[in-house]
C-alpha cells in the first residue's frame, strides 16, 4: 500500500517527473503512469493531480476512473489545458503572457482572485498568478469561480457536484514548479498540496542526481 497521499497522473514528461522527485514532495506525491490508471491503482490516494501536458485522449479513455475517485469523496486537481471534453467544461487556448511582471507588473493576466479559498489564503497576487494556459469558456453548472481575467474569462474553478472536490485551473503550478524557473511557486504549490491531502510540505526544492539517467524495470 502506498504511503503517498497524492497520485500524479504521469505522461512521462520531464517536468512532471522533476516535481514528483523533488525532496520536499517525493514522500507525498507519487507518479501514476497514465496507461496504468485504474480504480485499483488510485484507490489508496486522498487526491489526484492531473498536470499540464497530460495526454488528454488517454485521460478521456479513463475518465470514469477519475469520476469514480470523486464519487468516493476524494479530491482531484487539474491544471493547464483540458481538451477532449472529458470534463463538463470547455477549455480554449489563449496566448501565454509570461513576461507581464517585467513589462506591466501592475497588470497580471489574472485580475480577480477569491483569496478566501484555502489555496489562495495568504498569497500575494503575484504568487497567485504567473501565467495562464488558456481559459475555461464553460464550467459545470453551479461550479464556484475562484479566479478570472479582467475580461471575466474563467481561470480557476471548483465543484463538489461529483461527490468529492474537483478543482481546475489553467495555471500550471506543478509543471512550472518542476521546471524551476519561477522560484516563488513553493508558496502556491505547498498550499495546494496541504489543501489536497492535509500534509504540509517542508524543506527546499532539491534534486537527487540518482533520479536522472535512470533505467526502468
Amino acid at each position: 500500500m502506498s504511503k503517498h497521499k497524492i497520485g500524479l497522473i504521469f505522461n512521462g514528461v520531464w517536468s512532471q517527473y522533476t516535481f514528483a522527485k523533488a525532496e520536499k514532495y517525493k514522500d507525498i506525491v507519487e507518479l501514476v503512469y497514465v496507461y496504468d490508471v485504474t480504480d485499483a491503482a488510485v484507490a489508496t490516494y486522498d487526491a489526484l493531480i492531473v498536470p499540464f501536458q497530460s495526454n488528454q485522449s488517454a485521460l478521456a479513455e479513463r475518465k470514469q476512473v477519475l469520476f469514480n475517485f470523486l464519487a468516493a469523496g476524494k479530491k482531484i486537481f487539474i491544471e493547464g489545458d483540458c481538451t477532449h471534453n472529458w470534463l463538463d467544461a470547455i477549455w480554449e487556448d489563449r496566448p501565454v503572457n509570461n513576461y507581464w511582471w517585467v513589462k506591466d507588473p501592475n497588470n497580471p493576466p489574472i485580475a480577480h482572485t477569491n483569496f478566501e479559498h484555502p489555496v489562495y489564503t495568504g498569497l500575494k497576487p503575484r504568487h497567485a498568478c504567473w501565467h495562464t494556459h488558456g481559459a475555461y469558456t464553460k464550467i459545470p453548472e453551479g461550479a464556484e469561480v475562484i479566479q478570472t481575467t479582467a475580461d471575466g474569462e474563467v481561470i480557476t474553478w471548483q465543484t463538489t457536484q461529483y461527490g468529492g472536490l474537483l478543482m481546475a485551473t489553467t495555471l500550471d503550478p506543478i509543471v512550472e514548479h518542476g521546471i524551476q524557473q519561477i522560484t516563488h511557486l513553493d508558496n502556491y504549490t505547498d498550499k495546494l498540496i496541504a489543501f489536497l491531502c492535509g500534509v504540509q510540505p517542508t524543506g527546499a526544492f532539491n534534486f537527487n542526481r540518482a533520479d536522472f539517467g535512470i533505467t526502468l524495470n
Binding site: G12, W14, Y17
Partner: peptide, 10 residues
C-alpha cells in the same frame, strides 16, 4: 520537448 520518457525507455 514534453515527450513520454517512459515510453522512450521501453
Amino acid at each position: 520537448n514534453g515527450t513520454d520518457n517512459i515510453a522512450m525507455f521501453n
